[in-house]
Amino acid sequence: MKTILLGILASVLLVGCYSSDDYNDRSVQLRVDNAIQFDNEEEYSVGDTLYFQVGFSRYLEEDGFSTLLDVFETTNDEQFGFSFQLDKYSDFSNRYESVFIDQELIIGPRGDDANFFGDSMVVELNDARDAYTAEVGIVLTEIGDFQLDFDFLNFAPPFGDDNKVRVFIEYIPATTSTLNLEFSVIE
């Protein structure tokens, strides 16, 4: 009888090891693969301003569902924060290295510190209210070979109420993307 009892208890505990954890955090994770538009001139001069557009549709595909998700009606958020990197090629390391850009050299809409991490750029719901967009400019101040780096581009909702639905959007470029992010800056 002891063996039976121990067997039952062990079975319950072991089954628990294979059970999923029902973590319920009221957030929705989405992916977009075409969040960047960059009309790359490939060669710029010091003093030029490079522009690119960031954004995504208000209506996004969601894994497992046939209907697009209305991001704005779900969240009521008119802004999503994001950040990006600029890399410069280094002959020392023989690879691109991240460089810090003075915020004064970046042109574009910014989130306020109360709702987003410091120095976050934001995409905003456009006038047609069908997409979140931002145009970002970088004033080029030094020569070299550079690339825009969107490897960790995520769109995050504003800080705030735990009792509302929050949508997080990750940018993963399509494997067929031909977006060229490399450019040179000359004197």
């Binding site: 009221r26 998700l69 209305d70 009606e73």
Partner: peptide
């Protein structure tokens, strides 16, 4: 209660509510 619930609005788009 307190769970994300997905529905479809009049325009045919998915919407989450708690």
């Amino acid at each position: 209660d307190g769970r994300l619930v997905r529905s479809v609005n009049d325009a045919g788009f998915g919407v989450y509510d708690i």
